[in-house]
Every structure is written in C-alpha cells, then in structure tokens.
Amino acid sequence: MSAEGGRTRRELLAAVGASGAVALAGCSGSPGDRSGEPDATAADVRLIGHRGCADQYPENTVLAVEESAPHVDVVEVDVQRCGSGELVVFHDDQLNRLTDGAGTVSSTDWGTLRELTVLDSGEPIPLLSDLLAAVPPDTGVNVELKHEGMAADVLAAVEGVENEVLLSSFSADALRELRAESEDAALAPVFSDSTEERLSLARELGCEAVHPDHELVPGSDLVSTAHDDGFAVNAWTVDGAETAGELVEAGVDGLIVDRWDVLDG
C-alpha cells in the first residue's frame, strides 16, 4: 500500500530535524552501543502506531493496520480472550465505548463479538490471527496482552508470521507466563509508575525493551539506565511534535503514537 495522501515516515521524521539515512531496526530493536548517552536523532527513532493509530482509524481493526502500516515502522495492537476462548483484538474490558454492545469482552462469545463494529465504522472486531495476517511483512508488530492466561495461545498465533514481533503488557504475570513458555520471545513491560520495579522486572525476564509513559522520561535517568541494561525504550503515547522532540533529545528508541502525522506539530 502506498503512502499517497500523506507524508511517509521518512518525511515525518525530517519534520523534527532528522538528517541522513533512516535506520529501520524492526519492532523490538536494540539501543546499540550507546553507553547510556541520549545521543539519538529522530532518524534513529521508530514510529509505533498505537492501536493502529487510534486517532485516525477505528482502533485495533484490520483497516487501521492496513492504513497505518505505510507510515509507521511498527503497529501496536491489544489482545484479550473473549468469553468463548478466542483471542480478539480489543482494548477495553467493556464493549460500550467502542461498539453498540454491552458487557465485557471476557463474558461475550465470539459469535456475538464478530457481529459488532468499532466506532460505527463498519469495521468488525478482529481475531488476533486475522489482524496479524493483514500486517505487511516488513512492518513490525507489538502485541500488548491485556491479561494473563494467554501466553501459549499468543505465542502460537505469532509463531508463523514473517514480521518482527514484540510482546508487551502492564501485567507482570502475563510477561512471566510468556517467558516460561518461550526463552526467545521479545518482551517489554508497559508502565506509568514504579520505574525501578519495572526495570527490575525487565532484567529478571531478559526483556528486549521497556515501554514507559512518556511523562516519566524527561528529567530522569530512565533512558540511560535502560540502555545500560540493554533495553530499547519506546515511550507512549506521544501527543505532538514538541513532546516528540523532547523524547528524541532524551534518547528514546521509539515513539508510540495515536497519529502517524503527530510529528507535523
């Protein structure tokens, strides 16, 4: 799919002062030999489409993935188990914000969920397998697990895809389950507080990256500490070019965004 009608990631990064070649390192990536120094430029930073760029497209849908993929390095989606056991791509516990349905995802069977559409867009709630099939092979995938108890099934779903895959979660138990099932899975804790605790968890599990709330980054040593430990830092959710510039200056490796054109200002 072309990027017609909007600037590409390369052009967007140029908007915050990038120069030289853009380094596309996949979805998990590595901070490289940076010795804790915040020396990245915008050209080194990955753009990660949060829920498939939720401010632009109906979130966590196949359409969102197809439309955002030309503009980002990685698409980020949420997964949870529905009432009949299938893995569905949906963020909220409750159905009512995003659909005309009621109740929780965990108590609703797939036969009911598949008939609902997201934000009156006509786009259905997808199975994780169907959404993964829609991601171009050269685009990374970040799957965020909304709860524990899915590790084996999530790993089975991503096993056959060509994409680079990063598995993240707020739940320490979900991450521990993933590590117990796979020594090789690329993992990342997501957090908005308890930075030291989450960095400790990342060390314990041999994670690839950490995903802090962007407000935790400026004025802290989070990035340098994470890089010293070998973790990439992907900050969420970046709401504008000014915030993006601060994070790039701080040395983050990825910007998790609701709009791929956020760098326009």
Results as ranks from 00 to 15, higher is better:
residue 182 S to E: 01
residue 87 L to F: 08
residue 229 D to R: 13
residue 79 V to D: 10
residue 198 R to C: 05
residue 89 V to Y: 03
residue 224 S to E: 14
residue 194 S to H: 13
residue 54 A to M: 08
residue 65 V to E: 02
residue 244 A to Q: 05
residue 59 E to A: 09
residue 70 P to F: 08
residue 33 D to I: 04
residue 200 S to N: 13
residue 79 V to E: 10
residue 231 F to M: 09
residue 54 A to Y: 03
residue 2 S to C: 06
residue 169 S to L: 02
residue 136 P to D: 11
residue 168 S to D: 03
residue 66 E to N: 03
residue 189 P to G: 05
residue 157 A to I: 02
residue 166 L to H: 07
residue 67 E to Y: 07
residue 50 H to F: 03
residue 35 S to G: 09
residue 146 K to W: 04
residue 136 P to K: 08
residue 26 G to M: 02
residue 192 S to L: 05
residue 48 I to D: 05
residue 111 G to F: 04
residue 67 E to A: 15
residue 88 V to N: 02
residue 212 P to R: 09
residue 123 E to V: 06
residue 89 V to T: 10
residue 148 E to M: 07
residue 175 L to W: 02
residue 201 L to P: 10
residue 30 S to R: 08
residue 50 H to Y: 01
residue 109 D to W: 00
residue 170 F to G: 12
residue 227 H to T: 06
residue 93 D to Q: 13
residue 215 E to N: 11
residue 45 V to P: 08
residue 11 E to Y: 07
residue 79 V to N: 10
residue 190 V to H: 03
residue 132 L to R: 11
residue 76 E to K: 05
residue 157 A to W: 00
residue 104 T to E: 15
residue 84 S to C: 13
residue 41 T to R: 09
residue 55 D to Q: 09
residue 85 G to M: 07
residue 50 H to T: 00
residue 154 V to Q: 04
residue 69 A to Q: 01
residue 10 R to P: 00
residue 245 G to N: 11
residue 1 M to E: 11
residue 21 A to P: 08
residue 265 G to F: 02
residue 40 A to Q: 13
residue 224 S to L: 07
residue 80 Q to G: 11
residue 16 V to Y: 01
residue 27 C to W: 04
residue 234 N to W: 04
residue 128 L to R: 01
residue 230 G to P: 02
residue 88 V to P: 00
residue 169 S to R: 01
residue 83 G to Y: 01
residue 234 N to S: 12
residue 87 L to I: 05
residue 104 T to K: 11
residue 146 K to D: 02
residue 156 A to G: 05
residue 41 T to Y: 02
residue 246 E to I: 05
residue 20 G to C: 07
residue 254 G to S: 07
residue 101 G to P: 06
residue 96 N to T: 11
residue 57 Y to W: 14
residue 151 A to I: 10
residue 72 V to P: 02
residue 124 P to S: 12
residue 107 S to Y: 03
residue 123 E to F: 01
residue 245 G to L: 09
residue 251 G to H: 08
residue 248 V to E: 03
residue 247 L to Y: 05
residue 54 A to N: 03
residue 33 D to E: 09
residue 41 T to A: 13
residue 197 E to A: 15
residue 98 L to E: 04
residue 212 P to C: 12
residue 226 A to C: 10
residue 215 E to Y: 09
residue 52 G to C: 09
residue 99 T to V: 06
residue 1 M to S: 14
residue 205 L to V: 10
residue 110 W to R: 07
residue 205 L to T: 08
residue 185 A to D: 04
residue 55 D to H: 10
residue 52 G to A: 03
residue 18 A to S: 15
residue 106 S to G: 13
residue 73 D to H: 13
residue 226 A to P: 11
residue 235 A to H: 08
residue 171 S to W: 07
residue 186 A to I: 03
residue 114 R to K: 14
residue 135 V to R: 07
residue 163 N to Q: 15
residue 70 P to G: 12
residue 114 R to V: 14
residue 214 H to W: 04
residue 147 H to C: 11
residue 114 R to G: 08
residue 217 V to M: 01
residue 252 V to S: 02
residue 225 T to P: 01
residue 168 S to E: 03
residue 199 L to T: 06
residue 126 P to V: 13
residue 246 E to C: 08
residue 12 L to K: 05
residue 41 T to E: 12
residue 239 D to W: 04
residue 243 T to R: 14
residue 157 A to R: 01
residue 94 Q to V: 13
residue 157 A to P: 03
residue 22 V to N: 00
residue 185 A to W: 08
residue 187 L to A: 06
residue 14 A to V: 14
residue 179 R to C: 06
